[in-house]
Design a binder for these strands. Sequence first.
DNA 1: GCTACATTCAATAATTATGTTGAATGACGT
DNA 2: ACGTCATTCAACATAATTATTGAATGTAGC
Lengths: 221, 221
Amino acid sequence: MSISNPKQALYEQFAQVAKAFGNPQRLELVEHLAQGARSVEALAAKLATPVANVSQHLQVMRRAGLVTSERDGKFVNYRLADDGVLDAFAAIRSVAEKHSAEVERVVRGWFDRRDDMEPISREELAARMSDGAVTVIDVRPPDEYALGHLPGAINVPLAELSVRSAGLEPSREVVAYCRGPWCVMSFEAVAELRQKGLRARRLQDGLPEWKASGRIVDVEG
Amino acid sequence: MSISNPKQALYEQFAQVAKAFGNPQRLELVEHLAQGARSVEALAAKLATPVANVSQHLQVMRRAGLVTSERDGKFVNYRLADDGVLDAFAAIRSVAEKHSAEVERVVRGWFDRRDDMEPISREELAARMSDGAVTVIDVRPPDEYALGHLPGAINVPLAELSVRSAGLEPSREVVAYCRGPWCVMSFEAVAELRQKGLRARRLQDGLPEWKASGRIVDVEG
DNA sequence: GCTACATTCAATAATTATGTTGAATGACGT
DNA sequence: ACGTCATTCAACATAATTATTGAATGTAGC
């Protein structure tokens, strides 16, 4: 389409940004990058996707202003351009959640319908944490945990949960969280823990939201 | 694409919403629907686009949850699903504006061919205002105007401009502004006023920039 | 210089999005 | 029932997006 007036040109620019969000793999990249800067190959490994493919997606995102890149030796590290990107992602997700019966159907259908799977809010968790009455587990992979996690949270990657759940104190409620409000791993963790008879709930948000609300985050080393 | 796990299904849903925003014509539809419910043909007339085309775009938006439709006799009125849609649009626009190098390049490239449409700077406007030689109009919706506007600015929402432009003094130059440097409404306002033979220019910035530069802002009530 | 490796580029094939056209549907008034 | 009008549908052509592959580029270490 040839652009003949500034109004069209501007809508074209805005649409370009929206398009950059309009692909499931790129959204997954946004969610990973919300945890911190990552190299192309690290992201490719996370998505189980060819490197060239991820590189192309990242370039689309860079052209739209979602991410910036910086070379570090052999690596090129990508990071989110600014907090506005996460705001936009959250706003898009919110529209999807409000409309989508579909989103809810997918989630409930997969994780089995349990109305007591209500998530716990940041505020409630903060209160319970100060009482020391709850075990908080971070079900993300160790590298993400190392870059920042909830204070006092134990890292129990989903892959290891079946082994390590035995070490959890059965009398304490467990709260699981991961990358974001709809990050699938925390759903799966809760389902698995409940199956073993533990009391488990999911944090409504993920680490990025926790951080964004101005709360404390622990970092390794 | 066959969806085999809930993570993919969720990202697919979110991407669907983003895609619905990822087209310039649909963004223009969002902006028109932000003024209120409209029929398909009314929207088609505004965009100067075939009805069938607009109908298809609206259906994409409905499937994504951006709009709802309701039949009224022969007409079908579409409206924005909820305020979250405008929030998402604003967030997307904000990302685009921050990454404004490309936005600026596109707009500049167009304006360079018509230097009489150069935007007016804050400094120049402030000077002209103290001379009383200029009419300043705020083309944002009334609720935004009420929360703060340039001193002496008249609120003429874009939707009412065609009616109210008749009341403007033809000998005075008009300066229009809205939400930010690339807010489309001020472009449209200037275009419309010029079409009616008025001398009109656009303020280079929007209210946020005016406020940020430490200048006075009037607030209602 | 050479090798190893991370990233990007270029070319392709497959899929999806978009615009256009004309026909079909649904609702109103006569 | 009939004609009219707003909207939607269906079919097609064109353009854009995406995944895949292998080659090219750039960097570090030797």
